[in-house]
Amino acid sequence: MKPLSAIVFKDIVIELRNKETISSMLMFGLLVLVVFNFAFQPTGAERALIAPGILWVAFTFAGILGLNRSLSIELDNDCLQGLLLAPLDRGSLYLGKVASNFIFMMIAEVMILPIFVLFYNLRFDLQFLQIAGLSFLGTFAFAAVGTILSTISANTRMKEVMLPILLIPLTLPVILASVMATSAVLSGETEGISSWLYLLGGFSIVYLVASYLVFEFVVEE
């Protein structure tokens, strides 16, 4: 537990100094909300229909931005080498990066969410809390697979471009399940929602375990 909290603490301290990651994620998420509103020009009823999709597109792209940022911090000045020399096993390093990526994405999402509710004329009530809970689950699944894929893409010649190419085909179940569950919450028909929640939970657990096991192959020289 100790190395995990140390990595998270280190990332938070860096972020508090320059505030680059979260501000860029937040800005990007907001821009997605605005652009989609122009692109679709939804009227009242349509707005509730397309809102879940727009929210998760904003979260996904902001998340990719955050993942890229979190790795470029480690690659600048060879910080990753330093981390690898530290007395901690590779699995804990992975879990620590998942935790800090997850926390950063959650902070950005918690700020995007009220603006989303405001823009799309939704209500601040129980629904809002339910969507926040869904974001929690969906973001965790996204961070679990995103962390290892961003480490893989960091080894290639086109770091920033490779991440979405690798990440989006693999995280489609997460995006789909989150969008479906969010629209179930928004429309109030929450009957079939449990299967989507199980899918998100199962995906997170399976990818967390698998990535924990193979992470050492990704970072070893």
Binding site: I148, L149, P169, L170, P173, L176, M180, W196, Y207, V214
Partner: peptide
Amino acid sequence: EKRAKLAAVFGVLGMIDVPFNYYSIEWW
């Protein structure tokens, strides 16, 4: 060497993804 290793990791992660894709799209 690195190409083989990272591609292997990505292949394993992709294989794990197939059943999740299958069920999510099936329900969709």
